[in-house]
Design a protein around this nucleic acid. Structure first.
Lengths: 129, 129
DNA sequence: ACTGGTCACTTGCAACATGCAAGTGTGTGG
DNA sequence: CCACACACTTGCATGTTGCAAGTGACCAGT
C-alpha cells in the first residue's frame, strides 16, 4: 500500500476495502459477475464514475484482474485474484452479523455461505484458523 | 438503519461500519480502551471532529454506549454493546487477511485473536456458525 | 450511408465527508 | 488568579461521492 496508517492489520485492511463500495463489487464478483454492466445492475445502484474508479483502484491493489475477453468490439471482464477471493470469510462474517442484528436483511445463498477458501502461503507468521 | 441501500447483509453491514474509522474505534474498545483521549492516542491519528462524530453515530447505531463514569469533573466512557462486540469475528478475519496479504502488518495479541463471542438471539433466521 | 442502440466508460458540477488547526467550556491544582 | 487537562466544537480547505450528461467504439437494421 502506498501509505498505510499504521502496522495494525485491521487498519491496513480498511486502507484497502474500507469504503462503501469495494466489498459490494467483490461480493458481486464472488457471485460470478464479471462485467461493468453487471456491477451497475446491482440493487445498491453504484454510479458509473465510482464504479470505474473502484475497479481501477482494486486492480492497482491486486484485488482483481482486468482482461479483454473479446476484441472488436473490445470488452473487458473483471475477475477476483486470490487476494480478493481470500476476503470471502470477511463477507461471510458481515452476512452473519447483519442477519443477526440488522432487521430486514436477507440470508445469502448457501453456495455463498458454505464456500471455503484456501489462503495461499504468502507471509508466514500467524497460526492458521 | 435510516436508509439501507438494499436488503443485502453485506451492504447493510457496510452502511453501519463501511468507513475508515468506525472499526478502528471498535478495535480500541475491544482492546479495553474507553475514553476519548485513549482513542485519540491510537497510531492512526483520528482527528477530534471525526472521532466525536463517529462516537455519536456509533451510539445512535447501537454499537456502543456512552456513560458518565465521574461527575465533577464530568467524564464519559464509551463501551461496546453486544451488537458492537459481535463484530469481533469480522475484525479477526480482517487481521488474518492483512497478515497474509499485506506486508508489514503485525499480528494482533493472542487475547484478541483467540477470544470468542456469543451471538445473542435477536433475529432467528439462519443456522448458527 | 444513415439512424439507433449497447457497452464501457469520462466529464462537469454540486453536495457531503474528511483533515487540519484553533478555540471553547468545565473543572482541578497550586 | 493562573496554568493545565479533558472533551469536545468551530471554521475552513481539501477530498470523495452522487447525479446527470456526454463520448467513442462498434454493431444491426433500413
Amino acid at each position: 500500500m502506498e501509505n498505510a496508517r499504521s502496522e495494525c492489520p485491521i487498519a491496513s485492511t480498511l486502507d484497502f476495502v474500507g469504503d462503501r463500495w469495494s466489498l459490494i463489487i467483490l461480493r458481486d464478483m464472488l457471485n460470478g459477475k464479471r462485467r461493468y454492466s453487471e456491477f451497475l445492475a446491482s440493487p445498491e445502484q453504484i454510479t458509473t464514475n465510482v464504479l470505474a474508479d473502484r475497479l481501477s483502484q482494486m486492480e492497482r491493489f491486486g484485488l482483481l484482474e482486468k482482461s479483454t475477453y473479446q476484441m472488436r468490439p473490445k470488452r473487458y471482464e473483471y475477475a477476483p485474484t486470490e487476494m480478493g477471493r481470500a476476503l470471502l470469510p470477511l463477507l461471510q462474517q458481515m452476512s452473519l452479523w447483519a442477519n443477526h442484528y440488522v432487521p430486514g436483511t436477507l440470508a445469502p445463498p448457501e453456495t455463498f455461505m458454505n464456500r471455503r477458501i484456501a489462503f495461499g502461503r504468502s507471509l508466514g507468521k500467524e497460526s492458521a484458523l
